[in-house]
Design a protein around this nucleic acid. Structure first.
Ligand code: SF4
Ligand code: SF4
Lengths: 145, 145
DNA sequence: TCTTAATCAGACAAAAAACTCTGAAACAAA
DNA sequence: TTTGTTTCAGAGTTTTTTGTCTGATTAAGA
């Protein structure tokens, strides 16, 4: 069960985090990545393809080809991946699903949710992959097992 | 597109909020409620049925029957509705979809997300429907149009 | 040059979520 | 007692999301 993001987005985030734990432009096959994040190879492959079109990830065909982080880790934030896969509607909609969001007619959780929504956005956007690197490496290694 | 909750849960929340805007035990048919929250009648009906089994809502069959808020608005919180429909797994899972949540091997957003998650939980649980009543009435009336 | 291993594109399949239908039971009012 | 309106239970349908397959293309290395 997902929390906020779609499965695609969760796996996309995990894959990008995995790649960011290694020097830029290091190649990994979809198989390697999928085994590491424990997800079906073809599905991971499809997700990485969409991230390729959005420019975050690069790909190389042929024998010993694979995927790699194309943008410098100092220039990619988690929100960029979310934006490329799920989009940013999440940060514009009402938690309770009410149609209009207006200051005049706020829903019962308007104020608190607005604040939490902004903080979530900040969480995903004010640190780059480079800044998250140490903790990411730690997490990735623990997945290995 | 939903933000955190399923469509069922959003509509369940809206329906309960709607009922809480009126004196306890006031009957409304599924049709009336569905028109007000702008959703298919049968779907709303199904959702209210599940809330009936969980005890938050009561129902009365037959001519001039309908649904009504069964528990005192001073004793129901939004989290109770969420719990009855979507469950509370949401508040236990990782935003990034990583399997294990441990203090030893935190994911890159562990600390911030943990905090936001708790605040979201608090937002949904520290106010009763009775306390939200004024702002709810305001919101409900604006939906009328 | 040939084999092998990889991405890519797009169709396809399965599963889950959202939504609908049908028939039965309850019951108020004519 | 009959008629009309409602919930209820469960099956059925549709749509969306998730996941798979196939065949084409690319390229490294024997
Ligand atoms: S900001 Fe508040 S009122 Fe506006 S849509 Fe979001 S939760 Fe609803
Ligand atoms: S608390 Fe942090 S590390 Fe643990 S599952 Fe949630 S986001 Fe991941």
């Amino acid at each position: 069960m997902t929390v906020i993001f779609s499965k695609k987005c969760e796996l996309g985030l995990q894959a990008v985090l995995y790649l960011s734990a290694f020097p830029k432009n290091t190649l990994f096959s979809a198989l390697e990545i999928s085994e590491k994040i424990n997800a079906p190879k073809e599905f991971v492959s499809k997700i990485l393809q969409t991230l390729t079109t959005s420019g975050i990830i690069g790909s190389k065909k042929g024998n010993s080809g694979g995927f790699f982080l194309k943008i410098d880790p100092g220039s990619v934030r988690l929100i960029d991946v979310v934006s490329a896969i799920d989009g940013l509607d999440l940060f514009r909609n009402c938690v309770l699903g009410f149609p209009g969001c207006s200051v005049d007619e706020p829903c019962p959780v308007h104020e608190t949710w607005g604040k939490l929504r902004n903080e979530t956005y900040t969480m995903l956007s004010n640190q780059t992959l480079a800044e998250l690197r140490d903790i990411t490496v730690n997490k990735i290694n623990s997945l290995k097992k």
